[in-house]
Amino acid sequence: MNDEALLRYSRQIMLEAIDIEGQERLLASRALVVGAGGLGSPVALYLAAAGVGHLILADADEVELSNLQRQIAHGMADLGRNKAESARRAALALNPGCDIQVMQEHLDDERLNRVVAGVDLVLDCTDRFSSRYAINAACQRAGVPLVSGAAIRFSGQLAVFDPHDPVSPCYACLYPPEEGGDEELRCAESGVVAPLVGLIGCFQALEAVKLLSGAGTPHHGLSTFDGLSGQWRHFQVPRDPACPVCAER
């Protein structure tokens, strides 16, 4: 790191759990963020600001006026612009030294598998079961940790699925594929309070920084947040020995 980088990341470097070695690991790391909306906005901004050296932002959608209530990486000038490109511009405005690649597409299985195999961490910031299942399966195949977030109405959830941990479940253990489907609640149909997606996205970014830098202990199990009461609940989620995705891990 040069003097400018030492100054930029000084507040993290002074943390014993990160230090110079952890910051250098962040700078050398590669992370894929799938979804550049409500969750992906704070994730992209904080990971770039924290010094994650290489980010891939994937989103095929364009910025709409109704997004601006909660998707803080975008502004009025971004209306009609691809969300991944808009988030890239916002992240580079914070840290021009971050290498950010944009994928303006819905990733099919083959493309997703190839991209996931080339990163150190994946953050699922999508809002569809079909996308979450595909991302989870790709992470399990590649042995790449997955940080998953979700938010709807006043309710949020956070989970980390780490194939390197022999007791860690995967997303399909938590939500068996035969029970899922795209009939689930989505913000477009059910609404969401603006700060909630920021809160969950920030926790996703925090877990990513911990995993990539080696600081602390990764989140275990499933945590849910009730925005109306301000309360977190934590659930231990065991691996499903019959899981169709990770049973042979």
Rank of each mutant, 00 (worst) to 15 (best):
L6C: 10
R8V: 04
Y9P: 05
S10W: 00
R11C: 03
I18A: 00
I20H: 14
E21I: 07
R25N: 01
S29M: 02
A36D: 11
A36W: 03
L39Q: 10
L39N: 02
G40Q: 03
P42E: 12
V43Y: 01
L45N: 07
Y46S: 15
A49K: 08
G51V: 07
V52C: 02
H54Y: 09
L55D: 13
L57H: 03
V63I: 13
E64D: 15
E64Q: 13
E64M: 09
E64I: 00
Q69W: 06
R70P: 06
I72L: 13
I72P: 05
H74F: 13
G75K: 11
R81E: 14
K83T: 08
A91V: 06
L92N: 07
A93Q: 04
P96D: 08
L112K: 11
N113T: 07
N113S: 04
V115R: 05
V116H: 08
A117G: 14
D120N: 10
L121F: 06
V122A: 02
C125I: 11
F129Q: 05
S131T: 15
R132M: 09
Y133K: 13
R141I: 12
V144F: 03
S148T: 07
G149Y: 03
A150F: 01
A151N: 06
P163N: 05
V167K: 14
C170D: 04
Y171Q: 09
L174M: 07
E178D: 11
G180E: 09
G181P: 13
D182I: 07
C187F: 08
L206K: 02
A208T: 01
L211W: 10
S213V: 05
S213I: 05
F225P: 03
D226Y: 01
L228D: 05
Q231C: 05
R233T: 11
F235Y: 15
F235S: 02
Q236K: 05
V237Q: 07
R239S: 12
R239T: 10
R239I: 05
A242Q: 14
E248L: 12
